[in-house]
Simulated assay, not measured.
Amino acid sequence: MSGDGAAQGAAPEAVPAAVTAQDAAAIAHTAGVDERHAAFRNAPDGAPPIDGVALARLYGEPLFRMPTDLYIPPDALEVFLETFEGPLDLLLYLIRRQNFNIFDIPLAQVTRQYLDYVDQIRQHNLELASEYLLMAAMLIEIKSRMLLPPKPTADGAEPEDPRAELVRRLLEYEQMKLAAAQLDALPVIGRDFLRAQVTMEQSNVTVFPDVSLADLREAWADILKRAKLNQHHHISREQLSVREYMTKMLRRLQGVRYVEFQELFETATSPTVMVVTFIAMLELSRERLLEVTQAEAFAPIYVRLAYTPLQ
């Protein structure tokens, strides 16, 4: 047993089968660094190590030993693996990372994890932890309200879940966060691409095209052809008198009992004459010289002279 143990102690440590080649290389590199550091510690003051590799360089000079008076601030080697933009961001991260249903949040488990993170940041930044403490107090309050029996409502409806307001805020924050990520993914000039600028030298001398005699002849023939296609429409003003047509209408209605409305416009030679005839009829009706009658709806309209009783 002792012989086997000594043999096992003398043999180099074997790499487990589950370790990949990359991990084995990292282990070997770490072992080599440890050996060099041991050589640095065992070497006399100012003497270079066996392999001649400096530990660091200070102002271009090789440094073979760690300085004894080197001061490293406590926060110099601090590494933050996760950074959050606020309490809602941390709470949403805890929920999404563990695939919790956002509409049924296990507050006890989430609050415990939330407080663990708050305890870590309280050791370094108490002012930053105040915002997270406020959210932690809200989580505890919601959990306590869930443990108490719900208060009955006046209309007898089911009381609202104490987590409803928190869920609404988380969903709105997640939508804004996704929208901000989509906007940030859009290409931005100066960050994702640069605007190309090309300088072109242009000559100040204007070069006109050459025009031949045949081109001028064809252009003139085209102008003459288009001129023949142009037609002019002359509009003349027709002089019509409303008083004259009023007199004509009175003469036509004399000696007859009535005239149908459409017959008054049969002799009109143009739309203008029809309009003037209609205006003349309206003027005579306004002066109570004509009567326009109709027996019933949609029946023919008749025009006759107004009856003037004798005095």
Rank of each mutant, 00 (worst) to 15 (best):
E296K: 13
Y132S: 00
Q262E: 15
G5T: 10
E172P: 00
L92Y: 06
M246R: 09
D45K: 11
L264F: 12
G60E: 03
Q123M: 08
E266I: 14
R286P: 02
V259K: 05
R257Q: 11
A280Q: 00
Y245E: 04
L290V: 07
P73I: 02
M246H: 01
R286F: 08
E85R: 08
E263R: 11
G3W: 09
V188E: 11
K228G: 14
S241G: 03
E244C: 04
D210W: 09
S144A: 12
E291A: 07
M176T: 14
R168P: 00
V19P: 03
L213I: 12
G86P: 01
A11M: 10
T206W: 00
Q123N: 05
P209F: 00
L250D: 02
E244W: 05
S241L: 02
I301L: 06
A180F: 04
E172L: 10
N125E: 10
L63F: 04
K225P: 01
E35G: 10
M1R: 10
A108T: 04
V273R: 02
D23C: 02
L128E: 15
I105L: 00
E260F: 08
V33Y: 10
I50N: 11
G9A: 14
G255L: 09
E291S: 08
D104T: 07
V167P: 01
M249F: 03
I223Y: 09
H232M: 06
A108R: 04
L186M: 13
F80A: 12
P87R: 01
L92T: 08
L128S: 14
S212G: 12
V256C: 06
L81R: 09
D23V: 08
P44Q: 08
A18F: 15
S212R: 05
P152R: 08
A137C: 06
Q120C: 06
D215M: 12
F64A: 01
R226F: 05
F84E: 04
R36F: 03
T199W: 09
L58M: 09
S2M: 13
K225I: 02
E296L: 05
L171W: 00
I105T: 00
T267P: 04
L148K: 13
I72K: 03
A21D: 15
L55I: 07
L88M: 12
P16N: 08
M176R: 15
R257D: 15
Y117Q: 03
L92S: 14
E260I: 05
A11Q: 11
L305M: 07
P67V: 04
E131D: 15
E35F: 08
L115Y: 03
L81G: 08
F265G: 06
R217P: 03
F64D: 03
P12G: 07
A43G: 07
T272A: 11
L94G: 01
F208C: 00
T199V: 15
G156P: 01
H234P: 02
L128M: 13
W220L: 12
L58H: 11
T20E: 04
V118M: 00
L81A: 10
Y93R: 06
M176G: 14
G190E: 04
M281C: 06
T199G: 08
H124S: 12
V33I: 14
A39Q: 09
A157R: 09
A26L: 11
A214D: 12
Y93S: 11
V207A: 04
F40H: 13
A47G: 07
Q175D: 13
Y245I: 02
L305G: 01
V211T: 09
L178N: 11
T293G: 02
I105Y: 01
E61K: 13
S285A: 14
S130Q: 13
A219E: 14
P48R: 04
E291C: 05
